[in-house]
């Protein structure tokens, strides 16, 4: 697109000369159709595999077929439990992750100094490799069923992803562009707005995206062990009742919501924000 826009009118005419273009477009379309065909075939295949396996490979009580799970999801939606559990979980994530974001950014800025970097290094490494289970149990044993527990767990489990990305972003600051703007006497404010922030934004975004997905998982985990509300709590109940249908239904809801928030909303914002990156790639 960008290429054709740059071209002058007579060049455009040269580019869009008749048949060859159409043949190529048709080829491209054919390729896209093939690609989507294989993709959809992938989805269908695995759903069918699941459907066939339940009842033959394992009893359909244990491995509930897709239709059974769908029915269960419908019931959950009607019962009204969904919104209660969901809003409880989402609130904790909202508060916890906001705190984690500010803590993570602060430490990320601090680690520009080598001393502070060494100070925080082991902490950052170990928070990323420590299983979520450990956070869940520790806050469970200290805070009991209080909602402070999950929030603390979220902060500790997810801040380091923000930290690391902020640190990496600052380390990669485009010195050449900053020098250039200094040479042209660009004001510091404008430099911040036009050079430094646009450079840092993608790094921050990666940190948020990843930290957020960790926050999700940790919240649900703490709910499994120390809560009487929330998606994690209800998943544990279904597990203890040996109800595979209920468990899979709640898992599906959890999963779809997570994908929606991560892939849908965050990715949409990202594409909005970072359109210039696309253009750089075309050039």
């Amino acid at each position: 697109m960008a290429k054709t826009l740059d071209a002058s009118p007579d060049q455009l005419q040269k580019i869009t000369h008749g048949q060859e273009t159409r043949v190529a477009a048709r080829k491209k379309r054919l390729r896209a159709v093939k690609r989507w065909g294989w993709r959809i075939a992938g989805y269908v295949f695995f759903l069918l595999l699941w459907d066939v396996a339940s009842g033959t490979l394992m009893s359909d009580r244990l491995l509930v077929p897709p239709a059974g799970v769908a029915r269960e999801i419908g019931e959950i939606f009607q019962s009204g439990d969904l919104w209660m559990h969901l809003s409880s979980t989402l609130q904790k994530i909202g508060i916890g992750f906001t705190l984690a974001f500010f803590l993570g950014t602060t430490i990320g800025l601090l680690t520009q100094s080598r001393w502070w970097e060494a100070f925080f290094k082991d902490w950052v490494t170990s928070t990323m490799t420590t299983p979520g289970l450990v956070y869940a149990l520790v806050v469970g044993v200290i805070f009991g069923f209080s909602p402070i527990g999950p929030i603390v767990a979220i902060v500790f489990a997810s801040f380091s992803y923000v930290t690391v990305n902020v640190a990496e972003g600052i380390r990669a600051l485009p010195k050449d562009l900053i020098d250039m703007s200094k040479a042209f006497r660009v004001s510091p404010g404008s430099r911040l707005r036009n050079v430094i922030f646009p450079h840092l934004a993608p790094y921050l975004f990666t940190g948020v995206r990843y930290g957020f997905s960790i926050a999700w998982k940790v919240t649900v985990l703490t709910e499994v062990f120390a809560s009487n509300k929330g998606i994690g709590f209800i998943m544990r109940v279904e597990f203890q009742l040996f109800s595979m249908a209920g468990l899979l239904a709640w898992i599906s809801i959890f999963f779809i919501l997570m994908l929606f928030l991560e892939k849908g909303i965050l990715q949409f914002i990202e594409q909005r924000f970072f359109r210039w990156r696309q253009e750089v790639k075309l050039a």
Binding site: G42, G132, K217, M235, F255
Partner: peptide
């Protein structure tokens, strides 16, 4: 094409699940 999406979905499955 056949497997890519499935792999990405499986990657996103939380370990709790």
């Amino acid at each position: 094409y056949f497997l890519y999406d499935v792999v990405v979905v499986v990657l996103a499955v939380p370990s709790l699940v």
